[in-house]
Amino acid sequence: MTALPPALRDGLDLMVTEVCRYSERLVSLRMRAADERPLPSYVPGSHLAVACGDGINAYSLTGSGLYPERYAVSVRLDAAGAGGSVAMHRLRPGDVLRSSRPRSQFAPVAQARRHLLLAGGIGVTPILSHARAAHEWGTSADVLYVHRPGEGIHAAELRELAGPQLSVACLTSREAFGRALRGRLAGSPLGTHLYACGPEPFMEAVLRAAREHGWPEGRLHAESFGAASLDPGEPFGVKLPDGTRIPVPAGVSLLEALESAGRAVPNMCRQGVCGQCALTVTAGRPLHRDHYLTEAEKEENRLIMSCVSRSLDRELEVRP
């Protein structure tokens, strides 16, 4: 791994205090600051970028975020993944890991009349955080959580939060979830904001259904995990300020091509979310595929997120 990205450099050393195994594949970790200082509060739906194994993985925090005594994350073992979840599953109390401070990219909307919180599988983690904050501040929320039988890691905690302002339904069949979802999409009061987190097919289905029910884009909030696999794209080339030309083949990201050529770029999420791997474009038109730049910035074509975006032209001129 190259030098730590700024978010980890300015981050925290966290010591694991408890490991709670829910099933073979699901584990929850609780952590405190290794130096025993108070942990920073965080915005509901925040995540930690954690150095684990050979890479950096993002894990959602499951607490409400107000003066947490511990940071808690839950990790699903993904044997086919890059190895981050395997490393996380090996952690034992007393182990220390390097983490960013909590980063907010899935924040509640304070003005929302209600939050419709939709979780699929391990995507329940930021949804639990939102539900806990809604419970603490007395705001209105409606939770639907669909999971495989035996994998409802946070179902019990969610049910405990239920009350007059907060409804919770935990379901184990896709059909039951689909029915419940359609009911909520049709019946939620105007001004409800929808939050969805889960595997990519879950998110696509949820967002498609919401659009079919006429929900405006501004009311839809989605946090993807397990990196949406983008199409490999067309090959192109980049020219650097010193005149060096580097080819970027199909299926290889601009970031990876630069790294292979010994040109490290600060980076973190490698999913087009965190904004750390931005490069300035001095010629050519990027094909933007990130979730970081605003629409206006994408139109300007002054910046490119090198981890996911590519080029419309055969060559781009970029500088760090």
Binding site: P40, V43, S104, A110
Partner: peptide, 11 residues
């Protein structure tokens, strides 16, 4: 003028 992103609400 100080510009502060508040820790728990992000306001």
């Amino acid at each position: 003028q100080h510009l502060i992103a508040l820790p728990h609400t992000g306001a």
